[in-house]
Design a protein around this nucleic acid. Structure first.
Lengths: 207, 207
DNA sequence: GTCTATACAATGATAGAC
DNA sequence: GTCTATCATTGTATAGAC
């Protein structure tokens, strides 16, 4: 029999039930360790529903990843849209990035698993275009800042990597919670540190 | 029949053969997607050899992870040992970290998969002690630098997170190669960027 | 679009000989 | 310590009714 729906749960189709169930499971168990039966049980549907909508386990996974990529990508574009100083746009970018990753935490984990996990642990998904675009956007931003004097002269590619590493660390609760930090102040604190640098005397990073 | 040994291959026991085979497979396929048969075939041994030495698949995995943790940990301690300026010790730490991760690339991947991957994707391994120690060491270092004036006054915990993010990004070939960077100059380039900061006018980080 | 029932390959693991 | 042979279970996926 169809699973009893929880209180307040919409009468969504099996497709959405499956997506919702799968994202949670993939996030905590990973793709390979999550069985089709796990997903079916969590979604309260039977096997043919999955195979009807997604073809197979891999299809379900890829549908999920696409959804996640779009969300991050959208937040990114949003942050770049408005005109502001370079530093301010970088700041918005980082805040937006961390914000989406927190809002769609499970989905972010699933995407992250492909980006940084073992190459063949999950179905192949080509991120090159989207990563390249991100690198390009950030590098343009840095170059603009250097040209205008807002940023210190530097190799923009190194600067981009530093920014990426910073966002990466700021998005890992398991890590920064061990350091006794809350996500709230972390981003701003780390960002000002990245901007002003660790070493040397105080240099005001301009108003 | 036992697998024919490749040229120059030592006549090591099944135990070592299994460890060597497993690390490569876990690195590219992840724990869950790597089957016992995969490992056996790659190692050229039969099933009972694995179960005799490691009890089960999980035991083999954990033996591997312990080995990896020890390697990273040893490199870390080595970097802290000699007396030098704070900046120099930070520099050594980061170089050492990236160096081990490159030397034992597969092993590093396996460890990384537990640290940053889905919580239940691999057998449970308690990293808390080791991560806490790393955070502590870095934070002490930063505090020492701040006290001596070598480092800018700051929240040491934020500084530690920035350093961790930096090392993280510097250890991900798939990422920085897309930016057209080679691992060689990357660490030094990024480190000076972290020390001097992105924003503001040039501040020499002292000799 | 969803169900019941099931096919069937692959999986982790073991027994018992040597 | 390693082998051959095998098991019980779980895995993905499908056929066919409604």
């Amino acid at each position: 029999m169809p699973r009893k729906k929880a209180t307040g749960e919409h009468d969504v189709g099996g497709r959405e039930r499956l997506l919702a169930a799968a994202v949670g499971l993939f996030a905590v168990k990973g793709y390979a360790a999550t069985t089709v039966r796990d997903i079916l049980r969590a979604a309260g549907v039977t096997a043919p529903v999955l195979y009807y909508h997604f073809g197979n386990k891999e299809g379900l996974f890829l549908a999920l990843v696409r959804e996640g990529v779009e969300k991050v990508d959208a937040a990114r574009l949003e942050a770049f849209k408005e005109t502001a100083s370079v530093v301010e746009r970088i700041r918005r970018y980082c805040l937006a990035n961390v914000a989406v990753r927190r809002e769609f935490a499970d989905l972010a984990w699933v995407v992250e698993a492909i980006l940084s996990g073992p190459p063949e642990a999950a179905p192949p998904f080509d991120f090159r275009a989207i990563v390249t675009r991100m690198l390009r956007q950030l590098q343009d931003l840095v170059e603009e800042g250097v040209a205008s004097g807002e940023l210190r002269p530097c190799d923009p590619r190194h600067a981009v990597m530093v920014l990426i590493g910073f966002m990466e660390a700021a998005s890992r609760p398991r890590l920064f919670e061990m350091a006794g930090l809350r996500a709230d102040d972390l981003v701003e604190g780390m960002l000002s540190m990245v901007l002003d640098g660790l070493a040397g005397r105080v240099t005001q990073s301009l108003a």
